[in-house]
Design a protein around this nucleic acid. Structure first.
Lengths: 155, 155
DNA sequence: CAAACAATGCAAATTTTCTGCGTTGACGTC
DNA sequence: GACGTCAACGCAGAAAATTTGCATTGTTTG
């Protein structure tokens, strides 16, 4: 595995919250020269430690006011069926997050929809027409208490 | 609500995937001048349509190889208890995502841990010592099939 | 129809990032 | 302990990107 020193971790910690900081600003928090920060970030990106750099948009602002969590059980847990379902997840834009899990369900999905009608149309298309699916259980999100993919990095 | 035209949507669509594109590059995909792109993005950030700009780091690379999904049920669904639990979620760094939901569970959490031992220590601290919690059910993530907060924006 | 306004593009000014280069410090070998 | 190697550093100049000023265009409103 790639070795990360204290400075790398501090940089990651910072850009996980805000990746538009200038190298000058980063330099202050990390106690390094701007150039060094920049070179390290470049390396972290090349090595894949930083997987992506993205903007987070407000669901409300773009008319995606509803979020659902769906627990999905497949008919059989056979490799080809699982793989086929994974592909369906990746190809479906309404699915924001998809986890393949052990336990009560086989998959857990986070779905966005414009409204209930939109969600219902989605379920019909995505779930009912898929014969690999044994059943699914929907939970409506009332509050997104916390959301992010920021990992705690003990410095 | 804020009005978004076709160009705004195209810009959001782009920066949701990659916010390090130069205005020049954006200009090409959006059919606008670099300056206009820049100004629109600035506005979108000021208005809160773009909530944040962050780097996504690889869980593996930082030694957070385990992800759990936890369904939590509270003893009682009373406002003060719910609020207290929300605060706990926000304050706990191991909780990456927290949703307050209707249905079988009250909360759904996505937790990261270095390893099983780390996770067990977390559950002891976070769940067993909290008397508001009636029970919780853990599901181990085997594969993060898809992850992101990118919304589909019909252009 | 005219005034007001918002958005655009271009060009200049500013800021930020990138690159070349010489230096430093850690590590391994002789 | 001396020497060579190598990776990371900081500085300074070069290159690139962003921001700002300004004139223009198109749309809405009275």
């Amino acid at each position: 595995m790639i070795m990360l020193d204290r400075a790398d971790r501090a940089l990651l910690e910072a850009v996980q919250k805000n990746n538009r900081l200038t190298s000058e600003e980063l330099a202050q928090t990390v106690n390094l020269s701007p150039t060094a920060c920049q070179r390290r970030l470049k390396r972290l990106r090349e090595e894949g430690v930083i997987e992506a750099d993205v903007s987070i948009v407000s669901p409300k602002a773009v008319g995606r006011s509803i979020t659902m969590i769906v627990l999905v059980s497949l008919e059989r847990e056979r490799a080809d069926i699982v793989d086929r379902f994974k592909a369906a997840i990746r190809a479906t834009k309404e699915v924001m997050i998809g986890y393949y899990v052990t336990g009560d369900a086989d998959f857990i999905l986070v779905i966005t929809a414009k409204d209930m009608e939109d969600y219902e149309a989605f379920t019909r298309r995505f779930f009912y027409e898929n014969h690999d699916i044994k059943g699914f259980k929907t939970m409506v999100v009332m509050d997104r208490v916390k959301a992010g993919f920021a990992f705690p990095l003990d410095l």
